[in-house]
């Protein structure tokens, strides 16, 4: 059986994370989704994003003490959350999902 494709929002979060965690990005996000949201990557939805970002902030704080990098990374994720929230609340102006 083919492995299910991760959801688009999951892929977007991994893309942002890749800037900071490189090849470990996918594994890191998958772990946060599975351990804290009790979901698999393909089940991640836009509604989960805010909660996920909070958990990612906690996890990244355990990896590094560099506040600048943490703030920058979380800011990127919150920006992504804002964009997706805006897209979802205005579906007519939203392109493709």
């Amino acid at each position: 059986m083919a492995k299910p494709e991760p959801s688009q929002i999951y892929s977007q979060v991994v893309k942002v994370t890749h800037v900071y965690l490189g090849p470990a990005a996918d594994r890191f996000i998958a772990r946060q989704v599975q351990n804290h949201l009790h979901k698999s990557p393909e089940e991640l939805t836009y509604a989960d994003l805010a909660n996920l970002v909070d958990w990612i902030q906690v996890a990244v704080s355990l990896i590094t003490e560099d506040k600048e990098i943490i703030e920058e990374y979380i800011a990127q994720l919150r920006k992504l959350a804002q964009l997706t929230l805006h897209s979802n609340s205005h579906p007519a102006s939203h392109g493709t999902e």
Binding site: H18, V19, Y20, L21, G22, P23, T64
Partner: peptide, 9 residues
Amino acid sequence: NVTGLLYQQ
């Protein structure tokens, strides 16, 4: 050549 600011560290 690897990417990832924290990974690189």
